[in-house]
Write a protein that binds this DNA or RNA. Sequence first.
DNA 1: CCGCTTTATTAAGGAATTGTTAAGATCGAT
DNA 2: ATCGATCTTAACAATTCCTTAATAAAGCGG
Lengths: 224, 224
Amino acid sequence: MQKVLVVDDEEPILELLKYNLEKGGYDVKTAENGMKAVEIAKKFTPDLVLLDIMMPKMDGVETCRQIREIPEMQKSFVVFLTARSEEYSEVAAFDVGADDYITKPIKPRALMSRISALFRRDSKKEAPQSLITIGDLIIDRTSYTIKLKNREINLPKKEFELLFFLAQNPNKVFSREDLLHNIWGTDVYVLARTVDVHIRKVREKIGDDYIATVKGVGYKFNLA
Amino acid sequence: MQKVLVVDDEEPILELLKYNLEKGGYDVKTAENGMKAVEIAKKFTPDLVLLDIMMPKMDGVETCRQIREIPEMQKSFVVFLTARSEEYSEVAAFDVGADDYITKPIKPRALMSRISALFRRDSKKEAPQSLITIGDLIIDRTSYTIKLKNREINLPKKEFELLFFLAQNPNKVFSREDLLHNIWGTDVYVLARTVDVHIRKVREKIGDDYIATVKGVGYKFNLA
DNA sequence: CCGCTTTATTAAGGAATTGTTAAGATCGAT
DNA sequence: ATCGATCTTAACAATTCCTTAATAAAGCGG
C-alpha cells in the first residue's frame, strides 16, 4: 500500500484530498504546515508528498528542499499544488526536485489518474522475469496464460498468481501464510484453507504432478 | 554521447531543460528562436531537438519544417513542447515530421524517461508498422479501415486505435489504465470503464474471437 | 488398526468484475 | 447553428471468481 503525505494550510483542501486518496487505496497522512510536514516525512517516509506551494511561514519550495534532505526520502515523489494564476516559479519548484505539479482547483479524477501514473512509471522498471519454462509447462505473465504440452490454458487471476509464485521458486516449500502474504497481500484477511481450494483448481487444470503437498508445512513446485 | 538542441523563447525554461538534460548525460545546446535553432542544427547536428511550438516570429512547426530540410537531420528526433491547453494542431506537428510531443508544464523525470525511451527504440529507420495482418483480419493504419474476410469495415477513431494497439502486441495483456495512457494520452482523464464500452463496440463489429478478457487484469488480442 | 490431525474435494453464497444498454455530452461537418 | 456521429458516463444485468463451510479422504503416531 502506497503512502501519501498531504501538506496544505487549508483544512477543507486537506480533507478533500485525504478523502479521495483513501478511497483510492492509499495510506494517507496530513500536515498543515511545512515544519510538521518535514517531521511527519521523517517517520512516515511517504512514497509521495502532495505539497501546497503557497503556505504561510515556510513555503512549499523550502519544505521540499528540506524533505529532499532526508535520506529515506530520496526516491519518493514530490508533487506541488499550485493555484492556476500564480506563476510561482516552475523552475524553482523543479529545481528542488519536484516531479510534477497540479493546478488548483483540484479535480479528483485527474489527481488520481496522475498519481497512479507516477507510481506506474516507477513500477514498470522492475521487470521481473515474466516467462517461466519448466519441462512442458510454460508460464507467461505478459499474456496471463500457461501452455501445457502446447495446449493453451487460461487461468483466473488468483490461480495464475499462485502457480506463478510457486514456479518462481521451484522446490521451495511455502506455508499457506507465506502464500497469502505474497499473493493476496499483507492487509487481506482470508482463511488459510482458501489456498487449498485454489491449489486444487490449479491441479485440476495442469495435473497433480507439478504441485506437491508437504504435510504439516505447505506446498511447493516440483522440479522434475 | 547524445546531442540535444533545446529551442524555447523563455529563458527559465531553457535553463531548466538544459540543467536536467546535462545532469542526465546529454550534450546540450540552446536557442531562443527558430532561426537560431536552424543555424545551430546545421553545425551541431543534434540527435534530438526539443522545440517549443509557440514562439514569436517563427513558430515551432515552421522551424521543424526547415530543420527537416537539412540533410544531416533526417534521422534525428524532433519533440514538440506544447502548453496543455493550447490546441495547437497535433496534426500539423506530426505532418512536418515530429516524433512525439510533450505538454508543459514540463516534469523533469517524465521528460527524461520519454527521451531515453525515444533513443532506446532507435527504430527510426524501420518504418512504424502500419499494416497488420492476422488470419482473416487486416488492419490498415493508413486508411483507418479494417478488412474482415474481405469485407471492409469502418471503425471510428477510438475503436480503431484500440484494436490497432492491441493487435500490435498480440497475446499481451493490457490493463485499462495502460490502454488509456497509450491511446487516449497521458493528460486525458476518462474513467477506466470507458474502455469496456469501446471493446464491446469493436467486438460487435469483428466478433468475439479476437479480443479476450483477462478478468482482474485487462484485455488482450488473441493470436490463434 | 485406531484415533487424531491435516489435506482434498465439493457445493453454495457472496463479492467483485465485466457485459450491455441507453442517455447525455461533445465533436465535426454542412 | 444544426444535425449526425462519436465519445463518455451511469445504471443495471450477467458472469466469473473467490471464499467459506461442510464432509470425505489421507497421512501419521501409537
